[in-house]
Amino acid sequence: MSYSDDESLPGECDWCHDDRGLCDRPHLDEDRCFSIKLKETFDVETLIPCHARRYVLERMGFEDHESMETKKIHLRTHHGMDFEVNLYNSESVTLFGCKKWEALCRMYGFHEDMLVTMALGDPEIEQDNMDIWVLVDTPPILPLSYFHSSKNVWKMVDKTHYTNGSELTYQEKNHLIAFCTDLENYNIYNQTPQHYGQYVPLGHMLNYGNYHGDTLRIPMDCVPHLMYQNGSLDVLNIHPGHPTNLNCPYQISKRSGDMLIKEWKKCMDSRKEVLGSKRKRSARIEDRMISILHNGESGSILFYAILP
C-alpha cells in the first residue's frame, strides 16, 4: 500500500486505487457487504477494493486468485433488475467492465465519487451463490427499454428537457422511448429531410402559464437553431397508423428565445390516442405532453403526443 505523508489522510491503494485506507484490513461488513468508491472511468471498469477482493473471489467460485479468469455473475437490485456481467480477475486486481456493467451504471445514474454498496449472495443458498446484490435506495432513472433502443434514441432521451411538473419516472420513460422510436421510424419511412442540429425532446405540462390565449409556449432550450423568427409549422401526432397533421403559425420571442405557437386550441381539441393506450381523447390542462421540434429543408414540424 502507499499512503500520503499526512497520516491523518488515507492514501491510495497501489492496486485498486481505493483511497479510504481500508485495504490493509481485509474484511466484509456483516460478512456480506462491501462498498466501492467510483472513480472517473467507473463505467468502463470498476475495481473490487482489495479489502473485499478475496471474499468476492471465494464466493464467486474463482479457484486461483492470482490467475487470469472471467466469470459471468448476476448483479441484482431490489427493484427487480438483473444484469449478467463479466467479472474479470488477474494476478492482482478484480474488476467489472462490460457493456452490461455500463448499462447498470447508466440505469441508476451512478457518478464519480459515489459510494456503491454491494452484498454477496448467501453461500448457503446454491442458486444465490453467484449473485451480488447492488444495494441502491433510489429507483432507476432509465428503463430496460432504453438499452434495447438505437443510439439515436439514446441521444434524444438523454437530451430531454423537462418543465416543472412534467418529469417522468423511469417507468414512464418507456413512453418517451416509444415516442422517440416512432419518430425515428417515421423519418426513415417518409425520408424526412435532415434536421438542422440535434433533437431536444420536451416534457411539458400544459398549464395556464405555458398555454394562454390560444398560444402554446415552447422553451428556448428545445427550439432548433436557424429557425425563422416568424413562420408556420406542421403539428404532427405520429401515433403509428393514425397521423394527424395540423398547421399553426409561430413566432420566436426576441427577448426569451421561446417559441410561441398560435392557434394551439385546434391541437388541443384534436382527439388522439394517448401514448401507451388505445383510448382517444382531446388534450386538456394539466396533461403532460412530449414534443420534438424538427427544422429542415422541408420546413418546420412539431411532433407531439399526450402522455397518460
Rank of each mutant, 00 (worst) to 15 (best):
M1N: 04
M1F: 06
M1W: 05
S2Q: 00
Y3S: 15
S8W: 11
S8G: 15
S8Y: 12
E12G: 12
H17E: 13
H27W: 04
C33K: 03
K37T: 13
L38R: 01
D43P: 03
V44N: 03
P49G: 10
H51I: 04
R53G: 00
M60Q: 15
F62D: 11
E63C: 10
S67M: 08
L75M: 10
F83V: 05
V85C: 02
N89E: 11
T94Q: 00
G97Q: 12
E102R: 08
L104N: 04
M107P: 01
E112R: 13
M114P: 04
M114V: 05
L115Y: 15
G121D: 10
G121T: 10
D128Q: 11
D128G: 05
D128A: 13
M130P: 01
V134W: 00
V136C: 12
P143Y: 07
Y146K: 02
N152C: 08
V153F: 02
D158L: 10
H161L: 04
H161V: 07
Y162P: 02
T163P: 02
T163V: 10
G165A: 05
T169A: 08
T169G: 15
T181S: 13
I188H: 06
Y189W: 07
N190R: 07
H195E: 05
L206D: 00
Y208K: 03
Y208W: 00
G209N: 10
L216C: 08
V223E: 01
M227D: 13
Y228W: 07
H239K: 04
P240N: 06
H242T: 13
H242K: 14
P243L: 07
N247T: 15
I252C: 07
S253L: 13
M259Q: 02
M259A: 06
E273C: 03
L275M: 15
S282T: 00
R284Y: 12
I285G: 01
I290N: 03
S291L: 15
I292A: 05
G296V: 09
G296T: 09
G296S: 09
S300C: 14
F303E: 00
